[in-house]
Structures are given as C-alpha cells and as structure tokens.
Design a binder for these strands. Structure first.
Lengths: 209, 209
DNA sequence: TTATTAAGTGAACAGATGTTCACTTAATAA
DNA sequence: TTATTAAGTGAACATCTGTTCACTTAATAA
C-alpha cells in the first residue's frame, strides 16, 4: 500500500525535503515551510503535491486540519515511544461468536514493535475453533484493522453481528473461513455478501497463565 | 539534568497528558488541546506549567513560537508506570532443549499487570512438546523465577544445561515433567537430582503473526 | 490536433496557535 | 503575620497554518 507508485521529480523533491526537515527538527514541517524552502511564493502548489503523496501512500495525515500532523508512512519513527496503549474492546467467540464492540474493558500497554497500525485493538477469544493453531479460549488477540488481507491470514470476521477468528481464503466467488479444528467445518460465504465484514488481521497473541 | 526534580500533582498530570496524547496521536498536543482536556477555560495556566516542566527538564521545546514543537526530554520518553521492560534472554527448545542465558537480544515493553515479579524475563520457544497447550515454536514466554511451583504449572526446567518447557507434577520421590504432545513421553527425574533446576513458572505468552 | 495531468502563482478565509498581561486564589515557608 | 510560589481566569494580539478558488504554463497521452 505504501511506496509502490512512481514519483515525479517534484514529488520526490518534496518528499525528500519533508524527510530531511523531519530529521533535522524532530517534528514535521508546515506547508509554508516546505514552500519557502522550495522558493515558492504560494502554498497551493506544495499543498497539492502533498495530497498526491498521501494518495500514493508515501505520507500519512494523522489528523485533518491540524498543524504539523503529516508523517512519513512506513518510514522510520525516530523519537517515538517504545510502548503504546491498546484498548481491549470485547470478546470474540471462536465457535458461535459474539462481539461487544467498544466495551473498552481496559487498556493494555504493548511494545510498539508489535503494532504496525495505530488503530489496533485487543479481543479476547472464547471458543475452540482455532485450537490447532495454538489459539485457545482466554487468549488476547492483537487485531490490526485494514484491507491488506491475504490468503492464509488469521482474521476477525464479523458475521451478522457476531465475530469469529478464522483463517481467510479467497476462492473466486466465495470466501472460505477456515477453522483450525479438525472437528469443525469451514464457513463459506459469497464475497459480496453484506453480512460479512472483516474487522482486521490478527497480528499478535497474548496469553496469561 | 532531566527528570530529577520533584513534580507537583498538576505538573505530573500535565506531563502524563502530554505523553498519552503523544502515544495516541503520534504528534504532540497544542497548549489549547491540553487545556481543554483539563477542563480549563484559559490556556495561560497550562502554558506556565509547560514552562516549568521545561525548566525542570521534563520537556524540550524544539522550536520557539511554532506549533506542536514540544517533545518529551531524553530519558523521559518512558512508557509510563504501567509498562515495564523485559529482557529477552534466549531460546528454550521444548524437545531437546537449549538455553543461551543472558543473551539479551532485545528488550520488550509489557504491561506491568502481567509481571508479578521484577525478575521476569522472556524466552523463545523452539520445539513442539507443548503444542497441545497452545504453545508453538516461536512463541515468547514470560517466565517468572521463584519457588512457588504447583502441580500442573507450566515451568521452565533446566536439565543438564538445557532448558525445556514442561508441565510440572510432583510425585512423591520423583518429579514428572509432562509434555503436552500426545506423541511425546514424560521425563522422570529424582527430586534431589542436581541435574534438575527449575528456572521459573510461565506466566504469559506472546505470539507475533 | 485536443484533452489531461502536474506544477505553480496570487489571493484570501477561518480558525488554530504561541505568547503575554493583569488579576485572583490557595497553599506553604519564613 | 508577610512573602513567595503554583495554579487558574479572562482577554487579547499577532502570526501561523490548512484549505480553497481561479487562473496560467508546460509536458504528455490519445
């Protein structure tokens, strides 16, 4: 998602300026600061280029309309804190599932190396459907929302208000949600069925004995 | 230099708000955003407190007069009282085990709720002997040293310079180290055998997908 | 050729933002 | 007691800042 597209000379210039400014100051530049550095008399040009860089996945706007809230996507985060807080939003039953969204039982501090995404959250597993993958009831799953789901990924699927952990396989017209339990059957659903929503990909697992 | 001085309740509050905002947003707050969060109707109070925090070395102003250019001073970017750092000391092979003590590959921040003991450390699992308990190769185990071992606890045993994960059962004269894998046999050893050392109890598990 | 896209100018608006000043209140130390 | 310090209100000022609009220019694709 980030960094595949080709950049024009101007776009590359702006991106480099942004990165250099970031490195030298420790905070991102404003639109005008970039325009000044380029010798522009107007901010509109740089502003448009920044939008393009966002669309191409090189920059991320952390907040809209606020100052200095652009950041390099996927790049280095130099002074960032090593640990961040994750919300525990509810429970996910792996057999006959159930989700209490945004319950926010408590927060949880976790090393940021495990959190690629700023919107990640925690879910507690209830059923046995992923037992063969070493996911047992009571485990906490680190879930990262996003569209970058690939075959074989372990995901959280929302099916008719109910959430389950399953392994994801895209099979032409349909999607197969595969439990990792020899005694359970996969769920098949049409890829456009509105009853299906993928909440995110499972990035980590926490268990407390 | 940085962080030695004592803080008043208000100063600590502001510093914590700053750090939390930073963690949640990825960029520092403005004076007004802090004031709003505190319910203040004026920005002057927070502004003064921020100046004090700078004078005491907790905050650094990266640039004067510019928006969002405060940052946590060096050494002050700690994750807060709720998280602590754990050393990753080596690998433990669950079949034919092997331990590299104090390798200290890296540190890892974890919620302190998971750390009853200050001497806890992390070990990486290598074998398959605990697969039926949902412990698979690559998992990180949170190990808490100590003598309070009970039957059925999952423990790290050091046998002839080699470490293994097993379930612990005290059977009169002998100790049974039970793998959780149907195809593997338990290890029996006399309770006074000097070849056996219990490194600690497994208190948690971390897995990264 | 024509149409499209990226790049840039110039201007402007609304709100965000750091900073300062005068004043009040409460707690604490001398 | 008096003096000092931290904390907070309320108001105001001057910039800073993101965003948008209309228009121009150059390069490129169809």
């Amino acid at each position: 998602m980030s960094g595949g597209e080709i950049l024009t000379a101007t776009q590359r210039r702006v991106l480099e300026l942004f990165a250099v400014y970031m490195q030298e100051h420790g905070f991102p530049p404003t639109v005008r600061e970039l325009a000044d550095e380029l010798g522009h008399s107007s901010t509109a040009g740089v502003h448009k280029t920044l939008k393009i860089l966002q669309a191409k996945g090189y920059l991320t706007q952390l907040s809209r309309g606020k100052s200095r809230t652009l950041s390099l996507a996927d790049g280095q985060r130099l002074p960032g804190p090593r640990a961040r807080s994750l919300p525990l939003v509810g429970q996910v039953q792996a057999g006959a599932p159930m989700l209490a969204v945004e319950e926010k039982e408590s927060d949880f501090y976790l090393d940021s190396e495990w959190l690629g995404d700023r919107n990640a959250f925690l879910l507690r597993v209830q059923g046995h459907s992923m037992i063969d993958a070493g996911i047992v009831p009571g485990d906490l799953l680190v879930v990262e929302p996003g569209q970058d789901i690939r075959n074989g990924d372990i995901i959280i699927a929302l099916l008719e208000e109910e959430a389950t952990v399953k392994r994801y396989y895209n099979e032409k017209e349909r999607i197969r949600l595969q439990p990792e339990n020899q005694s359970m059957q996969p769920i098949y659903i049409h890829r456009n069925d509105p009853a299906l929503r993928i909440l995110g990909k499972v990035r980590g697992l926490l268990r407390k004995f």
